[in-house]
Design a binder for these strands. Structure first.
Lengths: 240, 240
DNA sequence: CACTATTCTCGTACGCGGTACGAGATTAGG
DNA sequence: CCTAATCTCGTACCGCGTACGAGAATAGTG
């Protein structure tokens, strides 16, 4: 194993995963690298979706044998953690806190949204997995905590707020992506519209019928995001 | 096919899925039912997690051949949609709106949380998939829209709020479940704590070190949920 | 310079997943 | 009864993650 190995049963010990070993003094030299493999996996996910990230396809992208990947990550789950932390590196270094924590928080959310739009598999990956706090993720958390320093929140509450914001962004971006996908497939969009029209016409869903009858607002996703984010952040309190 | 079949390429036409066909007048009688299969899948997911829900295992639970399931759902993705709508049936009938839309919204969120705690696979299932609006889901949406009637929000904004609340609940419950799982495995919890201590000690993460150094609040998940929900709902505006 | 311990590479193989196919069973209408 | 329609399900295919272990490369040792 390139970076050591733990006996831990189920899941990977974060120390073994993120804290680099000093490189063994004997043995064959690695032909690849964790970074290269991770980057290939990210490129694959960006181009063809997260389902295209299979050990076989990643291996062929980097020119390795399939089983060679297991010298760099003990399993696929770990590779996904590496991917998440890898792209999180694009977030740093962010601007230093301005003292206006609400504005800083909004800037953080906007940066996260841009990242997730660039890597559409990220919202799902973040939601499903228990976080593995790699160096890039940690750097960003550190930044968020610094931005929240002017508040009266204690440590746990600050982390809560950060988690809440991240989840909020992930959800909105996931919706945004789904919406875009739907718009890209007129046949499916039409089927959905037909179904909703049928439901609205059945008489058992008056509220829904009314909501759908209203004219569609021609709002850009950016505006929607900014509006909801503002509401959310402005609603956050600084009390204990 | 028990309920008809569409030519739609990719994804299932909601009309074919949710609007029942009149039952064909010829041909062999179905030996199972969509409801029974769905219930079996839900029971399996509740007992052993969503990964235990495979076509083979569901089939053996209901006493059917594997391929017989495909007479009731065209693919596994659809079966998952059926599961989501199935458990959503436990939400209705909710209490009628009281006129205090904030209180109603909080009640809705609490009901959703209880449902998700009963079916821990639900948050993930909701996040990943594009919603398929089955009858039970629709009934609940209808109820939420009615609760929001006293607000000045237009139809689209009401749906937005509902989606936001649902996502919020899903995220908190997912965290809650992960936290419980971590607490149930002391070895993993200890490894995590060791790692965070090492990070805090490296000098590059002062904010994180401070946040972790603070004494842990002994709050119940229920209290945390209620507190964050209150903040969120109270922060929502009724303006356009 | 062998010799050896160590580490990485990767072909093969196993079990399990979703599901296409098609033959046989069952039903209702003519 | 015959025929067309519908449902049942055994078999089979391909792709997945990954265990295993043989072989290749490296660095220290005599």
């Amino acid at each position: 194993m390139v970076s050591g190995d733990g006996p831990g049963a189920g899941g990977v010990d974060p120390q073994q995963l993120w804290l680099s070993s000093p490189r063994p003094r004997k043995g064959r030299k690695p032909a690849f690298s964790r970074a290269a493999i991770t980057a290939a996996a990210v490129a694959l996910a960006d181009a063809e979706g997260i389902d295209a990230v299979t050990m076989r396809r990643v291996a062929s992208q980097v020119g390795a044998g399939v089983m060679s990947l297991y010298s760099y990550a003990p399993d696929k789950e770990t590779l996904l953690h590496l991917m998440v932390d890898h792209v999180s590196g694009e977030l740093s270094p962010p601007a230093p806190p301005t003292g206006d924590w609400r504005a800083d928080l909004k800037a953080i959310a906007h940066a996260q949204r841009a990242l997730m739009l660039r890597h559409p598999w990220l919202p799902t990956a973040l939601f499903n997995r228990r976080w593995s706090l790699g160096p890039n993720t940690l750097a960003f958390v550190e930044h968020a905590l610094a931005a929240l320093r002017p508040t009266a929140l204690d440590g746990a509450a600050k982390l809560e707020v950060f988690s809440l914001i991240t989840g909020f962004v992930a959800r909105l971006v996931a919706d945004e992506i789904a919406q875009a996908a739907l718009a890209g497939s007129p046949e499916r969009a039409a089927a959905e519209a037909r179904y909703l029209a049928a439901v609205a016409a059945d008489g058992h869903h008056p509220e829904l019928a009314e909501a759908l009858a209203a004219p569609v607002r021609p709002l850009t996703p950016d505006a929607t995001f900014a509006r909801l984010l503002d509401r959310m952040v402005d609603g956050l309190d600084t009390g204990p």
